Computed example of a mutant assay.
Amino acid sequence: MSEFSRVLTTLRQIRGLSPFFALDVGRPDEGWHDGAALLDGSALPATVDRIAARYRTAERRVAASLFFLSYTARLLSPVVAARAVGGTAPDVRPANLWWRYDADGLRVRVKEPAGGVGIVESLAPVVEAVRSVAPVAPGLLWGNAASSAAGALRFVALGGAASAEECVALGEELFAEPPLRGCGDFIPFPGEVAFRRRSCCLYYRLDGGGKCGDCALR
């Protein structure tokens, strides 16, 4: 089986577990940005401004954090789920992406069903791009990534595709190297994936916002 076939097979498998893991493949309709637009140009700054307006915040760093939290949730969820079921994770580097932000929030899809690389290599250019748009601490952004990955592992365990113990072991493996190392801790809890991050995504700074379940401030 070719790599493309393995990725497509894995994406179909994890989509069946939950819509949370769905990731479409191929060129979309008009109105989508090439992934390269995350790294330069006006698309990312304009999107952060739209998020700030949508959530009525004057703090650009809050909007930038919310963008990256959504970005990592959309992309790391299928990547982590693919790893958890023993499949081939897709390439989610910017060069292999399409994305758009609209009334339904952030949407992403991959250009080709190619096999991926590590989480850090996939996300590092986007972390730097986000930090060029707003003064967000790198530890906060990597904490967002860890939170998204841990959330995906929790969904995998709840769906029964892998045991909680297997998911925690995978999470500890994924977070073993910097900059993900030290972003949070898995808390021993029988039969569940429990995670507490060491930073805060700043959601609580929105009007009506609160603290997430894994927030360090809880």
Rank of each mutant, 00 (worst) to 15 (best):
F4N: 14
S5H: 11
V7W: 08
T9D: 15
I14D: 12
P19S: 08
P19H: 02
F21A: 10
F21H: 09
L23Q: 04
G26I: 05
D29P: 05
W32M: 01
D34W: 04
A43S: 12
V48K: 02
D49P: 05
I51S: 10
A52I: 05
A53D: 14
R54H: 08
Y55M: 07
Y55Q: 07
T57S: 09
R60P: 03
R61I: 01
V62E: 03
R74Q: 15
S77E: 02
V80L: 01
A82R: 07
R83H: 01
R83V: 01
G87L: 09
G87M: 08
T88S: 15
W99L: 11
W99Q: 12
D104M: 05
L106M: 00
V117R: 13
V117T: 15
I119F: 00
I119P: 03
E121N: 06
S122N: 05
V126N: 02
V127N: 07
V130K: 08
R131D: 01
P135L: 06
V136L: 12
A137Y: 10
P138E: 15
P138S: 14
L141S: 06
L141N: 08
W142L: 00
W142S: 00
W142I: 00
G143E: 06
A146H: 09
S147K: 08
S147Y: 04
S148D: 08
A149W: 09
G151H: 11
A152D: 06
R154L: 11
V156T: 07
V156K: 10
L158S: 11
G159H: 13
E165K: 06
G171W: 01
A176H: 06
E177P: 03
C183Q: 15
D185C: 09
G191C: 14
G191T: 14
E192T: 13
R198W: 09
C200M: 12
C200Y: 05
Y203V: 11
R205A: 15
G208Q: 05
G209P: 10
C212D: 12
C215S: 06
A216D: 04
L217H: 04
